[in-house]
Design a protein around this nucleic acid. Structure first.
Lengths: 214, 214
DNA sequence: GGCTAAGCGGAGTTGATCTACCACTTAGCT
DNA sequence: AGCTAAGTGGTAGATCAACTCCGCTTAGCC
């Protein structure tokens, strides 16, 4: 699963020693967890401690903290692209909606590095690919009458930013709350009134979020 | 305008000396500008330099950097509450919409400290006040048939988070882009199809935003 | 079993901020 | 004009997190 330096080894890196591979995975897991729990500002030493390794071990695998983050983000990116390709296989005009839902699920399951996703996750090529897919999904949605004609690909990108923000803010105190927001967004781009099916946040959940931000 | 320590002087602070007041205002302006341009991580020394004062001057007025930030945020908060109260005076059910627009304008004009707004801007009392206003505006909107009955106050809070995110991401490269997003959000909570009047982001603007995030 | 390249740990260095301090200057009252 | 509390500037010191370094350990081939 993990067998090379951050980006998939350009020059064929020799395979890691068994213990090294184990430690690498531990580091990645620890970082994923800690970033999800407390954000990207957790210290490197803490990540190493949680992983049960020394910092030297971490720094042997990743040249710096940023590379570690980028590694995690890269995983998100490829999963996102996968979702996009799968959405193309959906029938009728529901591909776009199912992509958005998929992205929501994915992000909710990996809340750690979301802020870096758009910032430096997608390479120009990947971005181009994603946009191509979005364009096709959107066209189909237009044709199926599932989305207003005046909605553009750039609108969908903005929707994704919005979705990401809500996922980030609510994962801990009210996981799943993003679904209702997505309902509203989808209703917003739909040509006809559309059901908002998920329940709203309770007042209590909202308070919990406000508190936890402090 | 500026005449006291950060929060509106609890014990009647004696008025500042003329030069001190001038310097305080300079510091506040410099901080506003720099935070807006490059985010909260700009150094204190740079703020002092831009203001044309020494750091000692800054630290005489504000016990620490955080207090400076909170001071700026407090300003945003009171302006927001003002907007809310004004919205109550609006006729029919349009008060909610005009509040949201007002908040968008306000945030777009003060993009520096938005990330701190919800985190520690509103005191419990202020939050309660804002919620009360929202509740009344929402009720009226319901009665006027401007908003779907199933939309709650918590939904509106979430909408505000979404709006803030889009404002933050687009202020520099495409100021005003938030208006279209708000159109979509309003369409999403409206019981009937609703015009989306502002133009979408151009592909070029979107690229500029993606680049500038790096 | 022996050898060696690969891996490991974690104390210490570096660099960037934030903050305290204090000798010097000045506004503004009398 | 003279006095003094208030204000000023900027350097030195504290803090904190990222990162380096190197002597010790070990996997895995012979």
């Amino acid at each position: 699963m993990l067998d090379a330096m951050p980006p998939p080894a350009k020059a064929p890196t020799r395979p890691l020693r068994a213990d090294a591979a184990r430690n690498l995975e531990r580091v990645v897991d620890a970082a994923t967890d800690l970033f999800a729990e407390r954000g990207l500002e957790v210290g490197v030493d803490e990540i190493a401690a949680r992983a049960g390794v020394g910092m030297g071990t971490l720094y042997r695998r990743f040249p710096n903290k940023d590379a570690l983050i980028k590694f995690l983000v890269a995983d998100l990116v490829s999963q996102t692209l996968l979702l996009a390709d799968n959405a193309l296989a959906e029938p009728d005009g529901i591909g776009l909606e199912s992509l958005l839902r998929g992205v929501g699920e994915l992000q909710a399951a990996n809340p750690g590095c979301l802020t870096r996703l758009w910032r430096d996750g997608f390479s120009p090529t990947e971005l181009e690919h994603l946009r191509g897919v979005l364009r096709r999904l959107l066209t189909r949605a237009h044709e199926a009458g599932a989305v207003r004609p005046e909605i553009t690909v750039t609108d969908v990108s903005v929707l994704l930013w919005s979705l990401q923000q809500i996922v980030t803010m609510t994962v801990h105190a009210a996981p799943g709350a993003w679904r209702r927001h997505l309902d509203i967004l989808l209703a917003g781009i739909s040509p006809r009134p559309r059901k908002i099916s998920h329940r709203p946040l309770t007042q209590h959940e909202l308070d919990a979020i406000n508190d936890s931000q402090s």
